[in-house]
Design a protein around this nucleic acid. Structure first.
Length: 423
RNA sequence: GUGGAUGUAGCUCAGGGGCAGAGCACCUGGUUGUGGCCCAGGAGGCCGCCGGUUCAAAACCGGUCAUCCACCCCA
């Protein structure tokens, strides 16, 4: 037997209930976002590596150790995108969509790639849905994307999620805060965990996110970021809080929330379920400029599909389904005509023309959890009728073949329940 | 990148140096115009891969790859 091929490490196939969940979340999210004026864009999954290095930050873990990078046939350094924002900004600048525009709102969905050890809710190829607003900085925009995220989680019936908010301030605020943190910790470096000792040098603010209890104790004494915010940044986050309060969005201030991408400044936020971030984002006012575009502030978030599907309580997809079974004496033309008639009525119809026993056809129908079956055979052809069978009750009735209305009504009539308990 | 657990049939797993196993699923027939239940039969495996120890390895040892979990980090 030939060798069986396997998918790459951390790269999975998504099918069945999970795939249905993806479908449903995408349709809920895009409907919601479009109501707010966001337009979908489709972006490439590969870009030049330096786009990500420049935007996300050379020293971040994502760029320094988690990028799926390689050389193409001409030796160019390219990477599979680890997130969506860099490509979105690149695309808008390239098409000159930002200069002179007052506002631009976009959303995207697709696979992202990070070369990490796979774990629960974390894969090398994973899917993100994200949205972004490019416009003058107004806390109403920050509030809007947070509100949309909140609504989406509610639409997906996610239970027990929490929203944390923080302000990273502007570059000046951050650098004075960093200095203060370093100074305060100077004499205590030996007491910190090895990770924090490293972070202190490479990515100072990340120490605040440490889970180590001894580190946390030490950090209790640190001043908060909010003490270092300039008036503008302080007013901005305050205004955002007021707007969220007035819209009934619940949140808490989380001064340890620092984010792993360098391009953020100002407000940042995370929606968490069981300590795992499901939707996270913030403001990035300097990014467009950094990537060669005009001075265009922006904010946005990204959503982890695998994590959201796992946390969501979605209704099973609507079950407007029927199967069509041709038995001895039935004509394929008749079956096709009736199947199409029903499809025009919004019913999903699967036809089975395999040359197998009738029992087998019913068995397949049962396996596919289809409850309503339209049977067409010699008897029906002669009487110009079809037989409609309910697989749950076992009852059958005869319906005129071309009375599409009544046939469709009967198929949709009873809400189809889950299959009799599999005992 | 670090640590732990686990790789045996499609799935869930048992076994433990000497015949490759169970349940579920699958296929055929009983019943070629009727599924589930029942009965009878069947198919399916280099026991993850490579090497070592041994008369003999699925089992013991080493390596490797993969999966899961935790850490790091992140969505």
């Amino acid at each position: 037997m030939a060798k069986k091929y396997k998918s790459l490490r951390g790269i999975r196939d998504i099918s069945g209930a999970e795939a249905a969940g993806f479908n449903e979340i995408i349709s809920k999210a895009s409907e919601l976002l479009e109501k707010y004026g966001y337009e979908r864009i489709f972006l490439p999954v590969i870009e030049y590596t330096n786009l990500f290095a420049r935007s996300i930050g050379e020293d971040t873990d994502i760029v320094s150790k988690e990028m799926y990078s390689f050389k193409d046939k001409k030796g160019r350094d390219i990477s599979l995108r680890p997130e969506g924002t860099a490509g979105a900004v690149r695309s808008l600048i390239q098409a000159d969509q930002l200069s002179g525009k007052i506002r631009r709102k976009i959303y995207y969905f697709g696979p992202m790639f990070r070369y990490e050890r796979p774990q629960k809710g974390r894969y090398r190829q994973f899917y993100q849905l994200g949205c972004e607003v490019y416009s003058f900085p107004s806390p109403y925009h920050d509030a809007e994307i947070i509100e949309i995220a909140d609504k989406l989680l509610k639409l997906c019936r996610v239970k027990d999620y929490s929203l944390g908010i923080n302000s990273l301030g502007c570059a000046e605020d951050r650098s004075s805060y960093k200095k203060a943190v370093k100074k305060k910790l100077e004499g205590k470096v030996e007491k910190l965990c090895p990770d924090c000792r490293r972070r202190l040098k490479t990515n100072t603010l990340r120490v605040l996110d440490c889970k180590n209890s001894r580190c946390r104790e030490i950090y209790q004494e640190l001043p908060g970021m909010d003490d270092f915010l300039c008036d503008d940044c302080g007013d901005y986050i305050e205004k955002l809080r007021q707007i969220l309060d007035s819209r009934g969005v619940k949140y808490s201030i989380d001064s340890g929330l620092v984010r792993g991408l360098d391009y953020y400044n100002g407000p940042v936020f995370e929606f968490k379920v069981n300590d795992s971030a499901v939707i996270a984002g913030g403001r990035y006012n300097k990014l467009v400029r950094e990537l060669g575009g005009p001075d265009m502030p922006a904010c946005g978030w990204g959503l982890g599909m695998e994590r959201l599907v796992a946390a969501a309580n979605l209704e099973p997809a609507s079950q407007k389904k029927a199967a069509l079974i041709k038995v001895e004496g039935g004509r394929i033309e008749t079956c096709r005509r009736i199947a199409d008639n029903l499809r025009n009525k919004g019913i999903s119809v699967s036809e089975g023309y395999e040359d197998i026993s009738t029992g087998k056809k019913f068995k397949i129908t049962d396996k596919n959890r289809i409850v309503k079956v339209v049977i067409i055979g010699g008897e029906e052809e002669k009487n110009k009728t079809v037989t409609l069978r309910d697989m749950e009750t076992g009852k059958q009735e005869s319906v005129p073949a071309d009375d599409v209305e009544s046939l469709a009504r009967k198929i949709l009539a009873k809400k189809i329940l889950a299959r009799k308990t599999d005992v």
